[in-house]
Design a protein around this nucleic acid. Structure first.
Lengths: 334, 334
DNA sequence: AAGACCCGCGAAACCGCTTTCACGGGCTTA
DNA sequence: TAAGCCCGTGAAAGCGGTTTCGCGGGTCTT
């Protein structure tokens, strides 16, 4: 059981021949300590291999050094590699700043479930939300002054700090690419329209149409839900209703794969007859046949941005939302 | 900044008209308190909406209520959906037991890097290791008495608690299936042979051969590294060296996909000419064309088992390793 | 030269819970 | 009935930092 006995301030103070208060000052970067005394403290710390006890520090200061990463896991969202990757980015940045990541994979639900209680009770210094479906909790926590960062654009425009991919730009680029390749009649299979990301990607798609002076024909806009099956199902409907569709932009790779599988089963050549573009540049995009043209987002950077925004807030700085650029990755499918 | 003022033991004690010591006893399940007094305490707690301050509790008791999940992130391992999924399982079980998950995605490396320091300094009550490449740190921590669980079979047979999938059984089932389907000459593309999982899957493969009375021909055993490219590369070599190969068992889906892509490019029919089986039942297995026959492991269960093992250790129970069964998922590729 | 300030520093209170210790009373034992 | 126990309980001492407060001495006014 023995977490090896570690020196305390008492020992450091004695060794450096100063008071514990001074040790605390030095170790917390209070610059009002005489350099010579500070040096002595640092020496003692070095010599004794001292490491601050976070728990004691937390109790006294009220700062726990813990940041919660909350993943609203109504379905097993976390199995989506996306979130894992974002989290690793967050974690890295936080660790570099001496903070730890507390992971909470849980149906967040109401504004006062278990997770809510935990966050409200001051046991973390801040919280980063993923895949948020309701703003109620966020609003509540924000009122309490808990530093918050949201990954993904929130619905309501509280002035919560958030980070997101440029979904609009991505949707625009995907659609524009299809058109540039010669597609005339481009359909979109959106993601769950309850997510802002799906809406923004759709907006990008619409923008291209707007610029082209046309409007997408009835039925070209299909409301999917990010699932493989949804891609299949909408592709079938599309081909039935619009046999002359020659471009499909799916709001994620998985749906793009679903669509492609249907097209191929029907003997429709991709990209010869219909071009397909996905979104995410996930593993399946790379391994697909034909390899999927898609929109890449820098997921790790997203996490890092979230972490950075959190740090900034903890330092009392004002923060602006961060929108990260996307890249069009051209492969065989379009 | 204001984590709303919460009641303390002092208040509870006053309200219930008992001492703080008694409050502590009641709240920690010490049964030596008179039922009537205990009731009063519970009432007060209820009425005041009291929630224990974990930090203070941790300082006084030495138990932080935090379990570290350490992911050795030499490459961005965490972007593998596998780990995210395991983690969600762990997290769920821990939360149900009032513990929090501290995520550390970091190159673990030596036995005394930052992570090591953190773990050694008693700031967590236990640690769960993922994707472990060296046992040095584990051994060290174990000596210090830190409860440990390893996900995946460790190399050295310290008696550390671990959970793993039945890799041997999975490898066996995959190979056996190929044979049952009529394959005569079955190759294997192993994973990074530095991992025990890869070795065990290989052992399963070998076992089938052993039972069949044959030995795999020279060159049928290819040492891959779990990457798509590695699957491609080995498939090429295989076909060149053994044009009559009619079965390939790849140690993960990604390599299986790589292999399939090469076969298809060469005009070799899958499964007509060569049957292919993967491992993991990841998303790409489902979306592949032909859909990939593979070995499914219950990844969430793996995480839950790890969490459960940790809880057991914290309760001072002796624990045995847990090996979870696999399922053969038959799809189109074999 | 005396009063007003400022600065660096230590003593001590404090954060909120846990745990040891000792006390008083009811019971058993001789 | 006296001595010995056991039990439920509260007082108080931590746990290891942080932070307030005030002191002594040097510097700056007037």
């Amino acid at each position: 059981m023995a977490p090896i006995a570690r020196p305390t301030y008492a020992v450091i103070a004695r060794t450096a021949n100063v008071s514990e208060a001074t040790v605390s000052r030095v170790l917390n970067g209070d610059d009002s300590v005489h350099p010579e005394r500070a040096r002595r403290v640092h020496e003692a710390v070095e010599k004794l291999g001292y490491k601050k006890n976070r728990v004691a520090s937390a109790l006294a200061s009220g700062r726990t050094g813990l940041i919660a990463v909350v993943i609203d896991d109504d379905l097993s969202v976390f199995s989506d590699p996306f979130w894992g990757t974002v989290t690793s980015g967050v974690s890295r940045v936080l660790m570099e700043n001496g903070l730890q990541t507390v992971l909470m994979v849980s149906p967040v639900g109401s504004a006062d479930g278990g997770v809510a209680q935990y966050l409200k009770s001051g046991e973390v210094d801040g919280a980063i939300f993923f895949a948020l479906h309701s703003d109620a909790l966020v609003t509540k926590l924000q009122k309490q002054g808990l530093p918050l960062v949201i990954t993904g654009t929130p619905h309501s425009s509280n002035d919560v700090a958030f980070v997101d991919t440029d979904n609009f730009g991505g949707g625009y680029a995907a659609t524009r690419h299809l058109m540039n390749q010669g597609a005339k009649k481009v359909a979109i299979i959106t993601g769950d329209i309850g997510t802002t990301a799906a809406k923004q990607r759709l907006d990008g798609y619409l923008q291209v149409y707007r610029e082209s002076g046309h409007v997408p024909a009835k039925g070209l806009i299909c409301e999917g839900d990010y699932s493989f099956e949804s891609g299949q199902q909408h592709a079938k409907k599309l081909i039935a209703a619009h046999p002359d569709v020659d471009g499909i932009f799916a709001s994620n790779d998985l749906m793009a794969m679903g669509a492609m599988s249907v097209l191929q089963d029907m003997g429709i050549d991709v990209p010869g007859k219909v071009r397909v573009v996905g979104f995410d540049d996930s593993l399946i995009a790379q391994t697909a046949r034909p390899a999927l043209t898609t929109i890449r987002q820098d997921v790790v950077a997203l996490g890092e941005a979230a972490g950075t925004l959190m740090i900034a807030q903890l330092n009392g700085q004002d923060v602006e939302p961060v929108i990260l650029p996307t890249d069009l990755v051209v492969r065989a499918s379009a």
